[in-house]
């Protein structure tokens, strides 16, 4: 059998094979074009919009350069909103680590393969069960006369719940109308995003290191603090990107559960929607972007991207 007949297709593929640069650009071109033109372009459009302004009389956006929108943004209300949302995002992140770590540790280091596979599927169910469905379910759970009030009543702790709900900042008339309830929902929503990367990081901790630490006389607590935790940290940071970022920008949960106080997401949504002030919404959106830029830079330094 001689060599195959050099058809046009063959010649083309051979020609491309000898030109790796061209092949690379052909492969990379479409996705890069999409991401740069659409995504980076959209982020640029966001910046451009923030330098437009809303005409108070006509209610129309004036497309000429002005700093007045930015000027209108810097108020006490904005500052409080950003601070409140950031504190919420941080609390949710810390709580997620606390709840996720034992589960991840058990999955990665103690569970039998069969139990581990089962837990993995149990983790995927709430992760992929629709976002809106989960929020709605919590709306039911936290409502007046809902599951939690019923359960608390059954164990006779209604007095305690009432006292917690009377605490100024976190309380409210019932759980669904309190920041405590909102916090609970956020932790629930993003918990799998924390468990999975922490589990992956813990799985990569060599068992021999843990054994060696014990053999050298370290107390389990010392082993945890000096061996397991430092090695798990990239996973924790990776998970925290999700828990922090998702809490920061969410506007559905703060709208449906919690107090009427604005959050970053809610403020952006309302400026854009009911107020019809796209420039102000765009300027406001730059704030969480800056917060995330700082957060991502710190995370990158801590090696989180290798753990994703």
């Amino acid at each position: 059998m001689g060599p195959p007949r050099p058809t046009a297709g063959r010649r083309l593929s051979a020609w491309l094979y000898r030109r790796p640069r061209l092949r690379l650009s052909l492969l990379l071109g479409p996705p890069l074009l999409w991401m740069v033109v659409l995504y980076v372009g959209a982020l640029a459009a966001l910046l451009v919009q923030s330098f437009f302004s809303l005409d108070d009389f006509t209610g129309k956006v004036q497309r000429s350069f002005t700093l007045s929108t930015w000027h209108a943004l810097f108020t006490q209300v904005t500052f409080d909103t950003v601070l409140r949302t950031s504190v919420m995002a941080l609390s949710v992140t810390v709580a997620s680590v606390a709840v996720a770590f034992p589960i991840a540790y058990f999955m990665a280091r103690l569970a039998t393969p069969r139990v581990k596979a089962a837990l993995y599927v149990l983790m995927l169910l709430p992760l992929w069960a629709s976002y809106m469905v989960k929020v709605y379910s919590w709306n039911l759970i936290l409502s007046k006369g809902g599951v939690i009030e019923w359960g608390v009543h059954r164990v006779g702790l209604t007095g305690l719940l009432d006292r917690v709900l009377r605490v100024p900042t976190i309380g409210g008339s019932y759980l669904g109308a309190s920041l405590l309830g909102q916090f609970l929902v956020f932790v629930y929503m993003w918990l799998p995003y924390m468990i999975l990367p922490v589990e992956a990081a813990l799985e990569r901790v060599p068992a021999s290191l843990v054994d060696a630490s014990g053999d050298l006389g370290a107390h389990p607590r010392t082993t945890f603090r000096r061996v397991i935790w430092p090695l798990a940290k990239p996973g924790v940071v990776a998970g925290s990107i999700f828990t922090f970022s998702l809490t920061l920008g969410d506007f559905i949960i703060p709208t449906l559960i919690g107090t009427s106080q604005p959050s970053i997401g809610k403020a952006i949504y309302e400026y854009q929607g009911s107020a019809g002030n796209l420039p102000l919404a765009a300027a406001f959106a730059v704030l969480p972007m800056l917060i995330m830029a700082i957060y991502l830079t710190a995370a990158k330094r801590m090696g989180a991207f290798e753990a994703l």
Partner: peptide, 15 residues
Amino acid sequence: LALPGIITGIALRSA
């Protein structure tokens, strides 16, 4: 995915 969804949303709307 790393940026909050609302940023992607409002950026695309602006564009």
